[in-house]
C-alpha cells in the first residue's frame, strides 16, 4: 500500500507509540475497505499530505478517540452513536453543488473536488462547545480553492453549508432533535481564510463516516459544531444564514461561535476545556489559539454581542 509510505517527516510522526499502534490498526482496517471497493480513486489521492505551517505540534488525540467520540446528531445524540451507526452513510457517489450568488453555479463530483488542490496535512486543535477538545491531523485543502471555482458575485457576503440528509441511513433524523438538514454558515472572509479547510481525510486516510465523510468543513477557531460534516451544498448569500443551532437555541448558539473563554455558554463556562486523554483541564484560548491568524477579522465586532 503506497499510502503507508511517508516521503517526508511530518509533525504528526512525532507521536506517542500508542497513537501509532492505533493508526496501524486503522490503516489495516481501511485497507480492507478499499479492497472492498469503497472509494478506490479517492484513496489513490490521499497520502500523508503536504505539511502545513498552520499545523500545531501538540500531541495528537489518538485515532481511537477521534473516531469514537463524535457529535453527529444525524446518527444519534450519544457520543458513541456515530461510530456505531454511521457505517451506513452512502458516500459514493458524492457531489457538492455550489450555488447562490455566483457567476457559474456548479456541481462537482468528489473526484473533481480532490483534484482542485493538493491535500495538505493540517494538525488543528478542535474545541467543542461542550468543553472538550482534541488535536486532529486532518487531510484537506483550503475552502477558498473550492469557492473560487464558481466566481462569487460582489453581492455575496456569506456562505451557507448544507449537509447530507439521508433519512434511510440516518437514524437520528427521524427524531426531531434538530431541524434537518444540518446547516452552518460563515462570513465570506471567514470562508476564504487560509485556516478554513475542507477535509477529506484524517490520520493519513480517508475520513471515517462518523467524522463527516467524504468531505467536511473544518474551521479551527470556532466551536466544533460550526465545522459541518458530510457537506453536499454550498450556497452564497447576501444575508447571514440562520444555522441549525441558532434555530434550536438562539440565546445559546450565535452565528459566529468563535471560541472565546470570556464569553460563557449561558449554561456552562467556556473558560476551561478538557483535552481528550488528559486528566487536568486547560485554559481555553481566545479563537482557540488562532488569534494571531484570525483576530483581525473581528476588529469591528463586539464579540460578547456577536457570540
Amino acid at each position: 500500500m503506497h499510502i503507508l509510505k511517508k516521503p517526508h517527516t511530518l509533525p504528526s510522526e512525532i507521536t506517542p507509540q500508542a497513537v501509532y499502534a492505533h493508526r496501524r490498526n486503522f490503516l489495516q482496517l481501511s485497507a480492507g475497505l478499499v479492497i472492498a471497493g469503497l472509494l478506490p480513486d479517492v484513496q489513490a489521492k490521499l497520502g500523508p499530505g503536504k505539511a502545513s505551517v498552520f499545523s500545531t505540534n501538540e500531541p495528537l488525540t489518538s485515532l481511537k478517540n477521534v473516531t469514537s467520540y463524535n457529535n453527529f446528531y444525524e446518527f444519534g445524540t450519544a457520543k458513541e452513536d456515530p461510530a456505531e451507526y454511521a457505517h451506513t452513510l452512502r458516500t459514493k457517489p458524492w457531489t457538492v453543488s455550489i450555488e447562490g450568488l455566483v457567476k457559474r453555479p456548479r456541481t462537482l463530483g468528489m473526484e473533481d473536488i480532490l483534484k482542485l488542490a493538493p491535500l495538505e496535512e493540517r494538525i488543528y486543535r478542535l474545541r467543542c462547545v461542550e468543553g472538550w477538545s482534541m488535536v486532529i491531523p486532518w487531510l484537506g485543502f483550503p475552502l477558498a480553492s473550492l469557492l473560487r471555482q464558481v466566481e462569487p458575485l460582489g453581492s455575496a457576503k456569506y456562505v451557507e453549508f448544507i449537509t447530507a440528509l439521508q433519512p434511510d441511513t440516518m437514524p437520528g433524523i427521524r427524531r426531531g432533535v434538530l431541524d434537518w438538514p444540518y446547516t452552518e454558515g460563515l462570513r465570506l472572509d471567514e470562508a476564504m481564510h487560509p485556516l478554513t479547510i475542507m477535509a477529506a481525510g484524517l490520520y493519513g486516510d480517508i475520513l471515517p463516516n462518523q467524522n463527516g465523510a467524504p468531505l467536511r468543513l473544518v474551521v479551527p477557531w470556532k466551536y466544533g459544531f460550526k465545522s459541518g460534516k458530510s457537506v453536499v451544498k454550498i450556497r452564497f448569500t447576501d444575508r447571514e444564514p440562520r444555522t441549525t443551532w441558532m434555530k434550536s437555541s438562539p440565546s445559546e448558539y450565535g452565528f459566529y461561535s468563535n471560541v472565546n473563554p470570556a464569553v460563557g455558554h449561558p449554561r456552562w463556562s467556556q473558560a476551561n476545556e478538557r483535552r481528550i486523554g488528559e486528566f487536568f483541564k486547560r485554559k481555553t484560548l481566545l479563537f482557540n489559539g488562532y488569534a494571531d491568524q484570525v483576530a483581525q477579522l473581528y476588529t469591528e465586532l463586539d464579540l460578547r454581542k456577536h457570540f
Binding site: 481511537k64 467520540y69 457520543k79 472538550w132 478538557r274 481528550i276 486523554g277 486528566f279
Partner: peptide
C-alpha cells in the same frame, strides 16, 4: 472498574 481498565471511552470523567 471502568476507570481501572480504561473502559469508559474517550472522556471517562464525563
Amino acid at each position: 472498574w471502568g476507570i481501572q481498565t480504561d473502559n469508559l471511552g474517550a472522556n471517562p470523567i464525563e
